[in-house]
């Protein structure tokens, strides 16, 4: 099915959705958002593209195999959990450090929780796309 309206708006929406998905991912620690919802939004972008163009086009635009990405995401999340072990704390305890911290300025907080969320993002993003690509290809 070729729809001019869909193809044109998709071009705009894909970029917007992808940026928004990263935004949702990053604000997730303190506000509504996070890896899961971010991954869903990101996947929506490519699903839209799949519908507007085709599975092959979307796969080419994505470059990596979504299934690989999903598994890698699980690995990243697991490693983020393991990082607590380096500090001698129980599995999955959040580890925090602050970039560019100085007197009176707490700097940019980086945490293992963020990496866990990135892992979740990748897992959800890749997982959903694997499924959608497989279903789209068959039907």
């Amino acid at each position: 099915m070729q729809s001019l309206i869909l193809t044109t708006t998709t071009r705009l929406l894909v970029a917007l959705l992808l940026v928004f998905s990263v935004y949702a991912l990053l604000r997730g620690h303190n506000l509504p958002g996070g890896g899961f919802i971010g991954g869903l939004i990101g996947a929506t972008a490519f699903i839209l593209y799949t519908i507007a163009a085709s599975v092959d086009e979307a796969q080419r635009a994505l470059r990596v195999d979504p299934a690989n990405m999903a598994m890698l995401g699980v690995g990243v999340a697991g490693l983020a959990g393991l990082s607590a072990g380096l500090a001698g704390q129980p599995f999955f305890t959040g580890q925090w450090f602050f970039l560019f911290a100085s007197e009176g300025n707490e700097g940019i907080p980086i945490s293992s929780v963020l990496f866990f969320d990135i892992g979740v993002y990748m897992a959800v993003f890749g997982g959903i796309l694997t499924l959608v690509f497989a279903l789209e290809q068959e039907i």
């Binding site: 899961f36 997982g127 499924l131 497989a134 279903l135 068959e138």
Partner: peptide, 20 residues
Amino acid sequence: IVIGFGLLAFALALVYRTYM
């Protein structure tokens, strides 16, 4: 919901494959 979604999506794909 998340787990249920995953399982049902799999089941749906399975039913489709079986039908084919």
